[in-house]
């Protein structure tokens, strides 16, 4: 049992289950309904898709602060291509993804090959890309998007809006890849000991470059889905998203030091935050308290996890080493 609790994925899943149970008892009319729960999943879908990329980055020991701006930028580029240039939806989607990928390529190259600190590089990129989003959206956002672009997110499958399915698909695919492919397993080695990974023949620089490209692409996908869901490309979209996503990923078991984390943890971290936020809305807790409570929860979860690990280490030193 202690071993299970030591795994953040299990302890978080248990906590989520408990929160859900208590919320269902306290708010029997409003919480355990199909409408409310599908809404919760829809609201966390965009963050979760970005969180999958951020989890891979944090496993390798780095993070990206520009993802929130990329969300606004990719949506803005796609909207510009479709609404202003009048090109087809596919061209808009492709342009949005290419622009996001390009941001990741620049980030990855400057960090991996030129040695710029990831925090400084992505912080600078956050401002540059946000400015780009404002420029491309003409400061007021592109208001009218084509019907078929909006249908990407506004359609429903089994009564649930599509971004939820895209989120589940993204988590499923990347969880499989992270568990089963050598390529993704290498990120754990890089995060655990970059020098040792390098000496063992892993092309660390190239791997880092791809991780930034992948994260930016996922942020680009999230940006397209958000613009499609809202039916408009907001230049202010994604503000503060980077910190929410990093919080979710840390909650989900990642460590800023690298080497730890599972893709499923990204989903559970975001689900935990989404559930807490939903319960606070149902309880009519104001925005002031929501920020305080989420901050306290993050500290408590990480502290409890650390305490549990220390205790396990004392009782079973070998298990910890393995």
């Amino acid at each position: 049992m202690r071993t299970l609790l030591n795994d953040r994925v299990y302890s978080l899943a248990l906590t989520i289950g408990l929160i859900g149970l208590v919320a269902a008892l306290v708010f029997p009319q409003t919480f355990p309904t199909f409408g409310n729960l599908s809404q919760v999943l829809l609201n966390l879908s965009i963050d979760t898709i970005v969180a999958v990329g951020m989890m891979i980055l944090l496993i390798s020991g780095v993070f990206d602060l520009s993802v929130g701006s990329v969300v606004a930028f990719s949506g803005g580029i796609a909207a510009y291509v479709m609404s202003t240039l009048g090109w087809p939806v596919a061209a808009g989607v492709l342009a949005g993804l290419l622009s996001a990928g390009l941001v990741g390529l620049v980030n990855g190259y400057l960090i991996a090959y030129q040695g710029i600190n990831p925090m400084i590089q992505t912080l600078a990129m956050m401002g540059i890309v946000r400015g780009g989003a404002l420029l491309v959206s003409g400061a007021v956002g592109t208001r009218v998007l084509p019907y078929w672009f909006n249908a990407i997110s506004q359609s429903k499958l089994l009564g649930v809006q599509m971004p939820v399915w895209y989120m589940l698909l993204t988590v499923g695919v990347f969880a499989f890849l992270a568990n089963r492919t050598v390529f993704f397993r290498r990120y754990y080695y890089i995060g655990g000991n970059e020098r040792a990974a390098d000496l063992s023949g892993i092309r660390v620089r190239r791997m880092k470059l791809w991780s930034f490209v992948l994260t930016s692409l996922l942020a680009g996908v999230a940006g397209l889905l958000l613009a499609s869901r809202l039916g408009t490309a907001l230049p202010t979209a994604g503000r503060g998203l980077e910190l929410r996503v990093i919080t979710a990923v840390i909650l989900g078991g990642a460590s800023l030091a690298g080497g730890h984390g599972r893709i499923l943890g990204a989903l559970l971290g975001a689900l935990f935050m989404g559930l807490v936020s939903n319960v606070m809305i149902l309880s009519r807790v104001t925005g002031y308290w929501q920020e305080i409570i989420l901050g306290l929860i993050l500290i408590t979860v990480v502290w409890a996890d650390l305490a549990l690990r220390k205790q396990t280490h004392r009782l079973h030193p070998r298990r910890m080493l393995s």
Partner: peptide
């Protein structure tokens, strides 16, 4: 009376809050 919404300027989060409030 109740007052809800994100602490920062975040329109998508305001939309999400309204969607969750409608259910109540």
């Amino acid at each position: 009376v109740s007052i809800l919404g994100p602490a920062d300027w975040d329109v998508p989060a305001q939309i999400s809050t309204i969607e969750e409030v409608i259910g109540t």
